[in-house]
Design a protein around this nucleic acid. Structure first.
Length: 283
DNA sequence: ATAAGGCCCTGACCGC
DNA sequence: TGCGGTCAGGGCCTTA
């Protein structure tokens, strides 16, 4: 599942190979992936444009062009982008192909078909509702405490809410809550100031480490696996302490990691180190 | 405004 | 071997 560290890795690793390349042709095989404009306008609109800038906002990739329009890509669950020789025939799950100058094509592959792309002169409209960048100056314990105040929803659910902060998904929410020693089901508004401070620091630490490790590549199935644009795996899965470790011992206390469902998503945690309330152990 | 549930998708996995 | 059922999950939409 590409989250902030995986998308950041995509931007960093795609930029050198896409910089200055021109789109000769764009082919959309699954129109549903194009959120704006229509698939036809998307195909014709990209012809002749050159990639010039590469940025990330939350889990969105922003590919700047020598044009007022920006190509925005959200990989959602299983989206992948990679370069292949120009004559590579489209596979079953390749929904968009950008034929580039230089004899290569950029392929968008997405078995789940959840990912979306936009080609728009107003990227700010697509991104308008996003909360601050977790690693930017606006994401502070004070900010987070204010956003959580009065909220009865579980803290895990609000960590996943992109309006509150942009870029955290299921993996890094679980890992951050474990490191902050907070039960994922705690009512967000009931967190004490010191706990919010811990959480804020844990979110940033987990994301920074995951970026350093080029993201998390998970699972035996290639379905949900995040793979870097060059085909390599990330490394942060080796540092997961709770995510998808149900039944395995907590690295701190040895109690089996448990799994519960919060906001329709699995949450992994240690019931000893992350008590629902009361006294805390000290990992 | 907030919270909760449904929906989109399909490969993997399980039981029979 | 094959079949049907269930699960996962980000973001958006609907409902209360």
């Amino acid at each position: 599942m590409p989250e902030l560290p995986e998308v950041e890795t995509y931007i960093r690793e795609l930029a050198p190979s896409l910089q200055g390349r021109r789109v000769l042709r764009a082919r959309v095989y699954w129109p549903g992936v194009i959120a704006f404009p229509t698939a036809e306008e998307f195909e014709t609109g990209l012809v002749g444009l050159r990639f010039t800038q590469f940025a990330r906002r939350g889990k969105y990739m922003l590919l700047g062009l020598d044009d007022p329009r920006t190509l925005i890509v959200h990989l959602r669950m299983t989206g992948k982008l990679f370069l292949a020789p120009a004559d590579t025939p489209p596979g079953k799950h390749e929904h968009v192909i950008f034929d580039l100058d230089g004899g290569e094509s950029l392929l968008y592959q997405d078995p789940r078909k959840f990912g979306r792309m936009w080609l728009t002169p107003h990227p700010e409209n697509v991104l308008a509702a996003l909360g601050p960048e977790p690693l930017g100056p606006d994401f502070t314990a004070q900010y987070l405490h204010a956003k959580l105040a009065g909220r009865s929803a579980c803290i895990k659910a609000l960590l996943l809410d992109q309006h509150i902060l942009a870029g955290v998904g299921n993996i890094y929410a679980d890992e951050a809550l474990y490191r902050a020693r907070l039960h994922p089901g705690r009512a967000a508004g009931a967190l004490h100031e010191e706990e919010v401070h811990r959480l804020c620091a844990a979110v940033q630490e987990v994301l920074r480490s995951a970026i350093d490790q080029r993201g998390s590549s998970l699972g035996l199935s290639n379905l949900q696996n995040y793979i870097r644009p060059g085909g390599e795996q990330g490394g942060y899965q080796e540092e997961h302490l709770v995510f998808r470790r149900t039944g395995q011992p907590c690295p701190h206390c040895g109690h089996p990691i448990e799994r519960i469902v919060i906001a329709q998503r699995s949450s992994h945690f240690c019931p000893v180190c992350q008590p629902a309330s009361g006294t805390l152990s000290q990992p």
